[in-house]
């Protein structure tokens, strides 16, 4: 059984307290915002693109530690990444970055950043991992 020490591992708390890529961009190529209506988590991402790569990404918003840490980790990872490569990031990659296991409710917190990233950059509207979730 996981206790809160496991869920709030030091790297999650570190990203929550000192978020990377936090803020907004002056004139972003793409801005996308999404929210988790269950808990009021909100994430906005601003992107600057150049030659098929994500030149700059910043996130803002509010929410639980897991949603905000997940956004911080994801932004840190995709900045400078080729779009095609970023497109391959999936639910398992996010969970691996967080290094925790989550139940279905908190999973939505963890995946909000990924959903925002994918919907913003690629217009993918399906919840990442939706198919896996439905068979759980």
């Amino acid at each position: 059984m996981s206790g809160f020490d496991d869920i709030y591992r030091e790297n999650i708390l570190d990203h929550y307290r000192n978020p990377r890529n936090h803020g907004t961009l002056e004139s972003p190529d793409i801005t996308y915002e999404d929210a988790n209506p269950l808990c009021g988590d909100l994430i906005r991402m601003d992107f600057k693109l150049k030659d098929g790569t994500i030149e700059q990404v910043r996130f803002s918003g509010h929410g639980c530690a897991i949603s905000q840490a997940s956004a911080s980790m994801l932004c840190e990872r995709v900045e400078g990444m080729a779009l095609e490569e970023a497109k391959k990031i999936g639910r398992d990659d996010v969970l691996e970055m967080l290094g925790i296991e989550l139940g279905p409710v908190r999973l939505k917190c963890a995946l909000l950043a990924l959903k925002t990233l994918k919907a913003g950059v690629y217009g993918i509207q399906q919840w990442p991992g939706e198919e896996e979730e439905s068979t759980r």
Partner: peptide, 12 residues
């Protein structure tokens, strides 16, 4: 502190 985080700590 987001209430979800509060509830998660207490859940432990």
């Amino acid at each position: 502190i987001h209430p979800h985080d509060v509830a998660t700590v207490l859940d432990a």
